[in-house]
Every structure is written in C-alpha cells, then in structure tokens.
Design a protein around this nucleic acid. Sequence first.
DNA 1: GAATAAATACGCCATTTGCCCTATTGGAAG
DNA 2: CTTCCAATAGGGCAAATGGCGTATTTATTC
Lengths: 215, 215
Amino acid sequence: MIKVAIVDDNTFLLHAIKEKLSFFDDVIVKHASINGSDLLIKLEENHNLDLILMDIEMPVLNGIETTQMVKQKYPHIKIVMLTAFDNDEHIFNAIKAGADGYLLKEINPKDLYEGIKETLNGGAAMNPSIAMKTLKLLRNPIDIKNPCDQEEISLSDREVEVLEQLSKGLSYTVIASNLFLSPSTVRKHIENIYKKLQVHSKIEAVQKAKNHNII
Amino acid sequence: MIKVAIVDDNTFLLHAIKEKLSFFDDVIVKHASINGSDLLIKLEENHNLDLILMDIEMPVLNGIETTQMVKQKYPHIKIVMLTAFDNDEHIFNAIKAGADGYLLKEINPKDLYEGIKETLNGGAAMNPSIAMKTLKLLRNPIDIKNPCDQEEISLSDREVEVLEQLSKGLSYTVIASNLFLSPSTVRKHIENIYKKLQVHSKIEAVQKAKNHNII
DNA sequence: GAATAAATACGCCATTTGCCCTATTGGAAG
DNA sequence: CTTCCAATAGGGCAAATGGCGTATTTATTC
C-alpha cells in the first residue's frame, strides 16, 4: 500500500485530487491538510507516510517552506509539488527545497498515479514542460537568492576558521592542534557557533554555513 | 507527419529503435547514421527534419559534440539523447550541448513515441531516473567533475537511504524512528557505510557521498 | 542445495560531542 | 574609566558516536 498525504488550501481541488487517486487500489490517502503547519502537526503524531502531494501557494506556511522543513526532519518521505502554476522561480525554489517532483494540477489520474510510483521508485515525477524549464535552468544558472534566509549571521574570523575545519570532518582535538589552541577553546568556539547558527550538531552547522556562503 | 532521424553506431540497436517507431503511423524515419559526421553530411543535403534520436558514445564524432553542432546550425531540430548509460557527466554535457530530452534505450515503444510528441510540443522528454539526476545537479551544481574519483563505491539502497538521513544531521535514534528500524540496525548500516566509503565519521561520510553523487 | 549478500538486531566499551558552569586577558566602544 | 566582547582556558556530565563482537532471516546466485 502506498501511503499518501495531500496538502492544499483549496478544499475543492483537494477533493479533486482524492478522487483521481481513488481509482487505484494500492494508494491510500492517510490525511489531508489545508496548510503547512497543519501537515507538520499531523506528521508529529504519525510519520508513517510514503509521499506528500503539496500545493505551493498556501496561507500560514507555504509549500516551499513546508517542503524544506519536512525534508529536514523526514528525509525519507517523498514530496511531489502539485500546483496550478509553473513559473521558474517556484520550480527552482521547490527543487532547492528538496522536492522530488513537480506536476501540474490538470494532470490526469493515470499520469498522477504513475508519477507517484516512479517517485517512490527513486525517480522524479515531472511534467514535460516543467522538465524543459529545469533543463533551461541547468544551462543558464541564474543566481536566485533565498529571500527567507536573510537572518543576520555574523561569525567572528576565528569562528569561521574553526567552522572551516569542522567542515572537513576533523575532531575537536585535531582542530585544536591545527589552530594551536586548547581543545577547550575549540569547544567553546563551537558552542558559540552553534548558538549563532541556532543548530545543535556539526553537520547542521556545516550545512547552514554553506547555505549562507560562510564557508 | 513527424520526421525523425536516428544516429547510432550499433546497427542492431538502430534497428530496434526503428522497430519501436514502426508502430506509429505518424512517425517516419527519414534516415539513420552511424556517427555524428555521417549525420552532418546528411543534414547538409536535407535538413527538413523534426527530431533526432542521438546515441552518445560513437566513433569519429560523439553525440555530445554532434548535438552542439547540430543545435548551432539547425536550432529548430529537436534532439533527444537515446543512450544506454545515464552517468551524471553525460547527462550534464548533453543538456549543456542543447539536448531537448534524455531517454534510455530500454524504453518501450509507447513511452518513446510520447516523449517525441512532447518534445515537439515544447516540453522535454525525460526518463524519471534522469529527471532525478537533473534535480540533483540543480541542487548541487559543484559536482560536475571528478573523473578521477572512480573508485568503486556501491552502497545498497538501504544504505543510501540511511546516508540521506545522516546528511540532514539526524541522530541514530531519529533515523531509526524515521525508517521504522531499531537503532542497532541503523548503527550497523552506518558501520557498513563507513567501511565502504573508508571514513570514520558522519561528516566525512556525507562529504564523500556528495562528491560521488550518491546523495 | 550451498554459498553469498543484505537487512535485521543486540551488547560492550572507549571516545567524542553537546551543553552547562566559571574565569582571565586584551582590545574596542561608550 | 568602565563596559562589552572576542579569544582564551578549564571542569563536569549526559548523550551520542564509532568500533568491535555475534546472530537470525531472507533473497539471490551459483
């Protein structure tokens, strides 16, 4: 059985999607949400889910932000954007957020079903016109900056230095030795880095730093 | 009528493609070539063509170079790569060269036909696994090169899944919960991953995996 | 049918990490 | 001159991690 959730603020379209899926016996719609935070609450209770069909434009928490958060916490759950619009920025941001596919709402039941199957099989579900847009994006890499990532992050020079070493997978003691510091100092720097970046582990710190072009 | 040309140095596969297309009345194979320069000569004589199905690995003039040259001279002709391999470098180079689609030779006749129709309709024909690779390329544009890193690294599906979760900075217990496994199992998988990648920590594993396009 | 590989799971133990506390020094800002 | 902060350094503790065993079940391959 394929366990699916749907997120869409338009209840009419939501029912339309449900109906399309109803033709297939091996697909079960576990739950539906009207926005991102609604979904996150449901996932907290139960994350036994294979795939999420996600609208983009929603109140409270939009599809892009929601995708990013779900993928961070539950990387095993596939996410396919299912939306009415196909403008470049939406597509690019959805992909950056970690979406595994991008389909248009006008899709017919069979193609939707096959897209879901392909996605669960490790592929990406993509409408041909969307596929063409991704090809163009690859050919002509435009720098679309992330407007939501504008929190001020200011690390000191020393902290950046430590972060750089962290990103190479070195341990506290090795970093201390490299920078001619006491391990205690390195640990203190890392503590401060974590606080500034609001993270709680090496990997998260390195990830966030890379996203913000700090390293 | 859809006017198609085929370029493939393997005459056996060439006939296989012709046969697949023979099921559809509105497709006509105008000519076939065994390499790029052969095709270019034929195009000199007559460029009244809608679409070219192009192999990549060919003697004299390979599919990538040929695509680039054809697109330069005859931008109106659509080109779909039709090849046995799907390695990242080929895909990226084909896209850069201007290919409008990328399919695998094992494709069934109907999908090939629909891919051609959709390409002529302004979309891109793409096998789902290829589509996934283009998404990864878009997310992580730095990983194009590395032809020297060809040490054999073969992780099982489950190991890749675990590695993906590791890359998000999740702990063993959370990963176990996400994948409905015991923490012991997750640890064992990670042990095996470390051995295969020859690393000794989360960060190193994630880094190496990213360099090898595993995640 | 036997061998192999993958996925599952547990235990032990040393090391590392993440987080809390305090403390000194030196330079910059007010 | 005082205040603030970055950089330095240390102690303590619980949890996470990494490396080593072993073991069963299930497919797949030979």
